[in-house]
Nucleic acid binder design. Structure first.
Lengths: 188, 188
DNA sequence: CCTCTTCTTGTACGTTCGTACAAGTACGAT
DNA sequence: ATCGTACTTGTACGAACGTACAAGAAGAGG
């Protein structure tokens, strides 16, 4: 049984440029989360993606462009997740409690949680990354503002970001009741 | 007029090992704040300190040790500053307002403000750095707890760290009145 | 004075990096 | 079928890296 339409010969892999771009971006995110932007290299990304070194420079003109594309993809993924959050919060009987539950879930993948702060720190240094980082932060704000107003949304999003950073540093689990209470206080 | 007790010959510089250690640590902090831990190199540090490359490896066995010493020094400086904060807050008529004033001052040096987050992110990845980062975060908590209690100190310190991160990303100035109001709310 | 230890410095080694590129393969268009 | 473009891959190159080290200079102790 020889195969159908798009299966390639053995030895050489299938041609699918878009899939390669995506795989490289996904691999880059992983590497960034693991070793940081400053130690992310073409070779580490290629190895993670299971692609040859040359693929990284074929699809992205420079390492910075590769990392920027990866961060963009991470931000897109985050925004999609926030859509799910928005749905949850809309139907939730208790906003603060529901929000803390979502945050707790989010923090169960600490590697992924680091990406946001990696982006923020990079944006603090490099103004070219600031629009992307601001959009990321604005996502949480936009989620909260309809429920609690603009200023409270500012404060709660800062509280959440600060709390998540503390969790990453301590490695401790989230203190849900304390955070819930603080959110309720700020939301009033 | 030939010189006094400790002045060395020309060409070779004076011997002062402790001063060199300190100068290397100080230069390392600057480089870390500018390019991040991952892109900090022996050569950049030596150039910033105005010392030869060999000095970096003579005083610190490895690059990680040099960076760790620099972060330790930054944490010590921070703790000393927090002592000054504590004095200010003790005499302040309005805790929230005084605190926001201190934060606003602190954020006027954005390069320095980045160091805390650089340390936190490094600690999130490398557990060896966690005690140092936790001490840093705990400093703010210890400053606040006598005034507002343990749980409110947790929440306010998270709020402040999150707010400072947002400021670094946006480059915007601090919204003092909004932050003051939020602190008052959480302190109650 | 001499001597030993500590510090200083320039240089060198092997590795890894970003990036370039030639040679080759696949596939749509003609 | 052929041709040309788009993609694939291995390899190469110069630069920068972490670290080691030899040779010398400085200052304390005798």
């Amino acid at each position: 049984m020889t195969n159908g339409v798009t299966t390639p010969r053995a030895g050489r892999r299938s041609r699918d440029p878009q899939a390669r771009r995506d795989a490289l971006a996904a691999a880059t995110i992983e590497i960034v989360a693991e070793v940081g932007i400053g130690r992310t290299t073409h070779r580490a990304v290629a190895a993670r993606a299971g692609l040859p070194l040359g693929a990284t420079t074929y699809y992205f003109p420079t390492l910075d462009a590769l990392i920027a594309a990866a961060l963009q993809k991470a931000a897109d993924d985050q925004e999609a997740d926030l859509q799910v959050w928005a749905d949850h919060l809309r139907d939730a009987p208790d906003l603060a409690e529901a929000l803390v539950g979502l945050v707790d879930d989010y923090m169960s993948d600490r590697r992924r949680a680091r990406i946001e702060f990696e982006l923020c720190l990079a944006a603090a240094r490099d103004t070219a990354l600031r629009p992307l980082a601001q959009d990321w932060l604005q996502g949480l704000h936009a989620l909260l503002a309809p429920h609690v107003g603009d200023e409270a949304a500012d404060n709660i999003s800062a509280l959440l970001d600060g709390t998540m950073l503390h969790l990453l540093v301590t490695g401790a689990p989230l203190n849900a009741s304390a955070l819930t209470a603080a959110i309720r206080t700020l939301a009033a």
